[in-house]
């Protein structure tokens, strides 16, 4: 019980530091700008056809390659310095202990990922909150765009999602898979930085996976090996006809990889020397 309480305190300490971290605010502002730009066309289109837009835009943020990369780079920016060594790190380690610190860092990655995607959902609704049709259906605008894309709208509204998922289902599964993908990226950076004792190799690896993900769209078999692809419900199999990874495969694979990364992180941090970072 003490271990959990201390780990949560370590996690809260990291959150306090995040509030003054310019990278965090930059990532959130950039996400806000791109989401607003991406969705504005949808709202203009809806006005043109005299319809309102429902609030279920979040699942479609993954549809356009560039927006998807921007949103995935958010977690990379937040977690790029894992294991979050700062100038007073040594004093934190002496007080917390290695295991508590590691657990606290992992809890931080998980909680931050949840908050990030809640923020993205709110961002997807907030700029247009006074022009939204608060219904539990996809609505006329999204429904029409999913069947008949408009060249004036850069957003890609997937017909697969509107056909096979209800809005709440799509929101839930997209949130779950996006959050898990963010945790995966955070832990990947943490594990690789810990093993290589660098502050950049983890980030390079995560960015490589994100930038290679669009390639997997052209080679379906590659999607089975691209963890970043699994976070987009549009790339998961709905029927047994296609060759896409299933939802169950995505969840089991994410869980397995995350558990493996956590084991690596614990093992590496337990046995390695702790290096003090000089202040810049």
């Amino acid at each position: 019980m003490n271990l959990i309480k201390s780990s949560i305190r370590v996690c809260m300490q990291k959150f306090r530091l995040s509030l003054t971290d310019i990278r965090v605010w930059m990532a959130l502002v950039i996400a806000a700008i791109f989401i607003f730009t991406y969705e504005k066309d949808i709202f203009d289109y809806a006005q043109g056809i005299d319809a309102e837009v429902t609030p279920w835009l979040f699942p479609f943020l993954n549809g356009q390659k560039f927006i998807r990369i921007i949103l995935l780079l958010g977690p990379v920016l937040f977690f790029c310095n894992a294991p979050f060594v700062n100038s007073s790190y040594i004093y934190t380690v002496i007080r917390a202990g290695r295991n508590t610190l590691t657990i606290g860092n992992i809890i931080y990655i998980i909680l931050f990922s949840i908050l990030y995607y809640i923020f993205i959902i709110i961002l997807s609704i907030l700029p247009f909150v006074f022009n939204i049709d608060w219904s539990f259906e996809w609505g006329t605008a999204l429904g029409t765009l999913s069947m008949y894309p408009s060249e004036n709208v850069i957003a890609i509204i997937s017909g697969k999602i509107t056909t096979f998922f209800s809005p709440l289902q799509a929101m839930f599964f997209t949130f779950l898979l996006s959050f898990v993908c963010s945790v995966f990226l955070g832990l990947l950076i943490y594990a690789i930085n810990s093993i290589t004792k660098t502050r950049f190799m983890g980030t390079v690896t995560a960015v490589f996976l994100i930038l290679c993900e669009p390639l997997s769209r052209n080679f379906i078999k590659l999607m089975w090996f691209s963890p970043v692809s699994w976070s987009n419900i549009d790339y998961l199999s709905i029927s047994s006809i296609d060759d896409l990874p299933t939802f169950e495969f995505a969840i089991i694979s994410y869980t397995t990889i995350i558990v493996a990364l956590i084991i690596i992180i614990f093992f590496t941090n337990k046995h390695s020397d702790i290096t003090i970072i000089e202040e810049e």
């Binding site: 004093y91 380690v93 002496i94 290695r98 003090i276 000089e278």
Partner: peptide, 14 residues
């Protein structure tokens, strides 16, 4: 892992 009830300054305080 880490000694209990220890206080330390190691190198330049950060």
């Amino acid at each position: 892992d880490i000694p209990d009830r220890i206080g330390a300054i190691i190198e330049n305080p950060g």
